[in-house]
Design a protein around this nucleic acid. Sequence first.
DNA 1: TAGATTGTTAATCGATTAACAATC
DNA 2: TAGATTGTTAATCGATTAACAATC
Lengths: 207, 207
Amino acid sequence: MAEKNIPSIVISRLPKYLITLERLSAMGVENTSSGELGALLNITPAQIRKDLSFFGGFGKKGSGYAIPHLINSIRSILNLDSVWDVAIIGAGKIGQALALYEGFLNRGFSNKILFDADPQKIGQKIGNCQVFDIKNLKEKLREYDIKVALLAVPQVHAQEVADQLVQAGIKAILNYTPVYLTCPNDEVYVQQIDPILQLQHMTYYLK
Amino acid sequence: MAEKNIPSIVISRLPKYLITLERLSAMGVENTSSGELGALLNITPAQIRKDLSFFGGFGKKGSGYAIPHLINSIRSILNLDSVWDVAIIGAGKIGQALALYEGFLNRGFSNKILFDADPQKIGQKIGNCQVFDIKNLKEKLREYDIKVALLAVPQVHAQEVADQLVQAGIKAILNYTPVYLTCPNDEVYVQQIDPILQLQHMTYYLK
DNA sequence: TAGATTGTTAATCGATTAACAATC
DNA sequence: TAGATTGTTAATCGATTAACAATC
């Protein structure tokens, strides 16, 4: 909780604004407007202006927003000024794909270390990531000062490992298992990635 | 669009109800109530009853919901009575992880075929999935009668391949690239999976 | 200056929740 | 029967949008 309790749905749109601004910036565009941004994102200009105005005035009447300044401002609001190191829990198929995925870089994250219980995997390297024994979870997370974890263990262990992560002081968990985790709301933020929930939403409209 | 235009946010909760009911069912539970379901999902009982009542009365006053019946009803509403074959576009790291992922089975999907442009990959098998030349996209999709695609190609090709998918008659795209796709709303449903958007949402609350 | 676009208020729209009669 | 819980209506809450004065 920061500032004066800004609605979560507003916060959830800021990363979308950010990636769109970064794309414009990469194309050499230096200025934009709520109208242009809205067209790119399928969001009304009024909503974009309203969202941004929660955090102050970033634009100039008549000429819109200076992209580099707005990018820096949103990054700062989202605490992306520095890079967050990330732990990947589980070195199975999903964990390995995440370890090898380069999309984290330049967007505020760096995947640093992996954990697994399989002696065959412990000690190996996957991409740039060392695989540690999950028995040393707490100790290693403290050593690397990691607050963000990607949970990619087998379903049956999801809740148990999540409990350990909370114990170890992790503050944000991105849950790749289809298990609905129960964690203390005041200690950790949890979000889930379950592609099948999204597919099932879409099949409603098909046929 | 089906029935009498039920809000999308209601539809998006049905898959969550379904997976929770399936988990209860697997544990041998045969009956539940909006109160119990709400506690498991962190949703108010009133909302669950309201959501379900869009589609008719599934419960019995005084005793709640018969789980097998409710599961079948929700499956049917979401068009999950039969299995949807799925095409994975791009046999890179993410595409391969998806091809090997077994979580689709039993939840209404079956990943059937892969596409790539790399001659080294074409003709190979990844798990049970044959890799086809993306040049034959349209023809193969028609042959296998596939309406659902997972898009996991390099960023730079995302929009171009999405256009081809629409052309080929795909009706639902789950977009694993961080690119915001522009597709005709009346021809295809698109949803995105970008883990970094979710991580950036959470970092707002950290520190 | 004239045109464009912001930031903000008020109006509208939609979603959630509380409450309760109906009834198993 | 008494207790529990649904389905539904009405009240509340929150989010989106329209409108416009301010001003670059």
